[in-house]
Amino acid sequence: MSDEYIIQATGLQKHFDGGGIKALDGVTASIRKGEVVVVIGPSGSGKSTFLRCLNLLEVPTAGQILFEGVDITDKKTDINLHRQKMGMVFQHFNLFPHMTILKNMTLAPVKLLKKSPSEAEKQAMTLLERVGLADRAGAYPSQLSGGQKQRIAIVRALCMNPQVMLFDEPTSALDPEMVGEVLEVMKSLAKQGMTMVVVTHEMGFAREMADRVIFMAEGKIVEEDIPEAIFSAPKQQRTKDFLAKVL
């Protein structure tokens, strides 16, 4: 982990229903290069909204996001170029059901990075081998289990050689016995030095892998610290209440 910031979010606000609902209410957070940040909090706390704001899937009502020093909330910024460098993994995988696994992985590198199909396929196969799914390259998403789908979704994002990976509750839709295989892939990714922002309910993963844990509630960051501090000695009552329920 370096001291260089890759993402700096300042004063993020996200209102729905014309201001009736404040999903984000002034969130300021920065992510360092190589850092693994885990965001936890009760449902409705705005943690997913915060994550989705980072690559502008959710456009913040107010506030600023700098990605590699560039203000991506500026209307003149071509967000598509910056999204290429921010991989995202969704709760419901969102693989493309009409394409094979290999096609899922090579579509973006071929169309956006202008890689040759053979080059993209070579990279995809290397990644598939790393997650133990090389033999499923020709399969369609509907032929895979949930855990396999999520591993594919992770390597699909990796095919774009992203600078940061965003995980939006990647294990929440999985059967319990499949959570482990996905967490393993995420752990090995973290060990390789990938910058990661992870929204999850997996406290074990947070404790073991996080460099920093952010606890959110009611659209605000309540507390952030190294995992030992958050889990063993939380300072805020709100954090204590939440952890008492989930641990």
Partner: peptide
């Protein structure tokens, strides 16, 4: 989620429509 997946990979709105 299909649109979001396409956009998150860096595809524009039109390309996501076309390919996905």
């Amino acid at each position: 989620g299909q649109m979001e997946a396409g956009r998150s990979l860096g595809f524009g709105y039109v390309s996501t429509m076309r390919y996905i």
